[in-house]
Design a binder for these strands. Structure first.
Lengths: 144, 144
DNA sequence: CTAAGTGTACTAGATGAAATAATACAGTTA
DNA sequence: TAACTGTATTATTTCATCTAGTACACTTAG
């Protein structure tokens, strides 16, 4: 379910947040569904419980999760809506990234094609070349 | 020339690298041209010389710069080519980013439009030193 | 030659984020 | 009661970044 890269520059707790968000957006996890317990996931991933909780509490703060002491953590009802709204900011990042690509002299067609592929295969993830012309994805070290 | 954000999560030396790359790609800095000295830039930006040198030595290692002891640092002849080749990897980042946008239910048209805007106005960044069509700088990129 | 500039190298220290470790407390449930 | 759950706290470690200070070798203008 989770794929943590301890060598990544991106903090572990952020990787958990990001992957959990992706699971919600992709519909794998649905509202009301219970997510792995803090301790359970810490054992499964061989990660300190505090790190898991840091991710969970942050998601709870954002309203994505609903933490219930004694019971567990559950996907919030409006999790998908909240995440979708935030993703709109990624359009700016997309434009900025595309500017660098444009400056490098890469054909616009190639950038457009990348977007087309993304919309054709939205569910393809890092370790999961889901169906596509996606080329070898090597390193994701650089998050900038 | 440079615009450093000390509060950004992105290390200062990386910001320098990134902005210098951008200056080369946009044609503001040309091959053979001398860049600010380590000490000079450190004073101008109120940054420790070691930090500047860390950025320069990394760019030298990549072949973007050519450091000449006693003289200065100069833009390498094939700097633009090297950078352009590397930018090709950004196509993968673009696709990954677009996948998240797709999952959020944002119309493909909006993503395509963002790319179109980028190609229409490649020179539009934090610094924008008189390179191309100078336009309103409202883009305030969210660290990275 | 001198002086001021250049890149480079080195050690040392400060700082902050991230992760670990070890407890502890309170609520839920079989 | 026992085993789970989330939550909180403190201390410690680790690491990257940045700063500070010094030093050396080179180039160039005077």
């Amino acid at each position: 379910m989770f794929n943590i890269d301890g060598m990544s520059r991106q903090p572990v707790y952020e990787q958990i947040i990001q992957q959990l968000e992706r699971l919600v957006l992709s519909g794998v996890m649905k509202p009301g569904e219970q997510i792995p317990s803090v301790r359970g996931l810490s054992v499964q991933l061989s990660i300190n419980p505090n790190t898991i909780q840091k991710a969970y509490s942050e998601l709870d703060r954002r309203g994505i999760l609903c933490s219930v002491p004694g019971k567990g953590c559950f996907i919030s009802d409006n999790a998908h809506i909240l995440l979708a709204e935030n993703r709109r900011k990624d359009l700016d990042k997309l434009e900025e990234l595309a500017r660098g690509i444009a400056l490098a002299g890469i054909e616009k067609r190639e950038a457009i094609d990348a977007v087309e592929r993304a919309y054709q295969n939205p569910h393809a993830a890092e370790g999961n070349p889901g169906g596509g012309q996606t080329q070898a994805i090597e390193e994701r070290r650089e998050n900038g």
